[in-house]
Amino acid sequence: MKTVMIVDDSPTILMSMESILARAGYGVLKADSGENALQKLQGGGRPNLVITDLNMQAMNGIDLIRNLRQLPQTRFTPIIMLTTESSLDKRQEARSAGATGWIVKPVQPGDLLAVVKQMVPGS
């Protein structure tokens, strides 16, 4: 089963994305903060895709992406950033930090699955 890690500090968003992804047959690894995400990956988790919120407390999405790119298991993993910001700068910053792409919030289930499908090989 392909696993998607979702990182967002909103329990609602975590919940809604989990249900969308789980229904589509993906395993879901949830984290409610960047720190929590890294912690979960220390345990050897190996997601096929990471979806992270951009604006989070403490460690923001871009910092998380930088950290993920240092971990062996997520060095090449596609990372999708969830953003409400329409600002191009943020996207470019995220891209140069190693984000693969982004989805603009609010996330439509169709968009989410389309992006996940595009990013996860063999799904």
Binding site: R75, F76, T77, P78, I79, G98, T100, Q118
Partner: peptide, 14 residues
Amino acid sequence: CFFAGDDPLRLVLA
């Protein structure tokens, strides 16, 4: 680009 999670081949084939 591989370090940004890209797989250009996958993208192209799709």
